[in-house]
Write a protein that binds this DNA or RNA. Sequence first.
DNA 1: CTCCAGGTCCATA
DNA 2: TATGGACATGGA
Length: 292
Amino acid sequence: MISIETGDCFNFSACLKFLDRGYDECLYQVTDAYVIRLIQISSRNVLIKVYEQDDKIIIECPDQKCSDTELLEIRRYVTDWFDLHRDISGFYKLLESVPQTSDFPSRYYGLRLLGIIDLFEALCWCVIGQQINLTFAHKIKSRLVHSIGKNLQYKGQSYYCFPTPSAVLELHENDLKAMQFSRQKITYLFNIAESFAGGWLNKEQLLAMNEEEQIRTLLKIKGIGPWTANYVSMKCLRNMNCIAYGDTGLSAALYKTFSTERKPDKNAVDKIFDRFEGWKSYLNHYLWKSLS
DNA sequence: CTCCAGGTCCATA
DNA sequence: TATGGACATGGA
């Protein structure tokens, strides 16, 4: 069992609610008290159950023996996933100082920027979600995961990891077509998987670069545009000044909250985000949240 | 029926 | 450099 202190401006229920937004999610199971998922650590896959007790986050690995090294990795995973180590009180002060967002801290108190820890998963999820409705996006992701994702049974339930790049590369184009991936998405998924398999793309290497280099590296892959690069930068690489330019949801939220144009251009978006230096990713996250 | 969704690439001018 | 079409499907 692992226990993690959470600190101020954290609300576990708000985070769980974000994880369970009504879509059919195949990579974890959420209730009002806990979330269970199978995660990949360096040596193997481990099932974890995460819940809150006495203002602490508790992680259990039911029916599994873990070494100290593995426990440390699991702790790191959950800390990163829930962004636990960040003190976001500065963000709340900024929100309060801006009239249009002054009620955000009370409305969304304790909501963290939930991450996608696996870089391959993050990139694929972006490609899957490009230009289709999220219900359908979850449907085809689920088909892919259930088809080739590592899984583990626990109490009659199956829990899945997102597939590895090499597992995706073993698929034939027709397999993905049968899951209703478009030809474009299939090409993009293979491009991304090959970048990993070819050894010139991985998370550690990206994390060693500065932000600008990271974006430049990601944009080289066909299928990854500015939206995906920024989304992954915020959800996986954990940069704090990312903006999902061109995102339809973000545009709608900016229109609603700041009375911008229906589709504000980059300059108009930057103008609003400028005063949130250091917290742009969080502002983006909270603006998305404000739509639901 | 038409439009458009957590975009991106490619062809054309 | 800028703009338009294709992409797969489903919900409004």
